[in-house]
C-alpha cells in the first residue's frame, strides 16, 4: 500500500477516534481508558510478525520479549476492563469502591 493511501486511512481513523468517544459519560472515563489500552495491545500482531521472520538468535529473543509484553497488554487489558465493568452491573452510578454486592 502506498503512502498516500495509508495517510488517508490514518486521517479518517483520527476523526473516527474523536467521534466515538466524544459523548462518554464521566463515570465511564476509567473503563474507556482501560478498554482503549487493551486495543493497542494489538501490537501483538506486529510482535508475532517480527518474531516469525527472525533468523538471528538475538532478534528472536527481543521479538519474543515483545510478544510477552504485548500479550500482557492485550489479555490483561481486556480482563481488567471486564472486571471494572462488572462492578457497574445493576447499579449505574456505582462509585469506584462499591463492588461487594454483585446483584444480578
Amino acid at each position: 500500500m502506498d503512502g498516500v493511501q495509508l495517510l488517508t486511512i490514518t486521517v479518517l481513523a483520527v476523526f473516527v477516534g474523536f467521534e466515538v468517544v466524544s459523548k462518554v459519560s464521566s463515570i465511564l472515563h476509567t473503563p474507556l481508558m482501560s478498554g482503549a489500552n487493551a486495543i493497542h495491545g494489538i501490537i501483538l500482531v506486529g510482535a508475532i510478525t517480527v518474531a516469525g521472520q527472525a533468523t538471528d538468535g538475538w532478534v528472536l529473543a527481543v521479538a519474543l520479549l515483545a510478544v510477552v509484553l504485548a500479550t500482557a497488554n492485550l489479555v490483561g487489558g481486556f480482563v481488567v476492563t471486564d472486571r471494572m465493568l462488572e462492578m457497574f452491573r445493576g447499579r449505574k452510578a456505582a462509585g469506584p469502591d462499591a463492588g461487594k454486592d454483585g446483584t444480578r
Binding site: T10, A13, V14, G17, F18, V20, H29, A36, T49
Partner: peptide, 23 residues
C-alpha cells in the same frame, strides 16, 4: 510493518485517548 490494522487501531486509540484525556 505495512500493517493497516495496526495503523487503524493505533490511530483510533491515539485520537480517542487524546479526547478522553482532555475530558
Amino acid at each position: 510493518l505495512g500493517n493497516v490494522l495496526l495503523v487503524v487501531a493505533g490511530t483510533l486509540v491515539g485520537a480517542s485517548g487524546t479526547i478522553l484525556t482532555r475530558l
